[in-house]
Amino acid sequence: MSVDKNTVAKIAHLARIKVPDASLEPLVGELNNILDFVEQLNEVNTDNVAPMTSVVAATMVLRDDDITAGDCRDEVLANAPAAEHGFFAVPKVIE
């Protein structure tokens, strides 16, 4: 499988990274090199092999339902590029 310019443009949009048209073509080459490389995996027979779901063989521990965090608006907003009246502010969204 390989990607073309359209596919790269599409995934760049999915990833919300602006890619100028002029940069699409070189990216096609770079990404296809990587994809060709990973294509090797097709040689491996993985019938009846379960995908790895966790690196450690442990079961997930359930947390108690206690309020242990929050009430720290100043910390939450401390690094925000734009915050007004206790909200994060972003360019207006039209739904």
Binding site: H13, A15, R16, I17, K18, V76, N79, A80, P81, A82, F88, V90, P91, K92, V93, I94
Partner: peptide, 20 residues
């Protein structure tokens, strides 16, 4: 939105794409 660099765009999606 929450921290770090923001490059202003005309829309939210623009801002995302330019910032990133």
């Amino acid at each position: 939105v929450k921290y770090g660099l923001r490059v202003t765009g005309e829309s939210l999606d623009d801002m995302y794409a330019l910032t990133r």
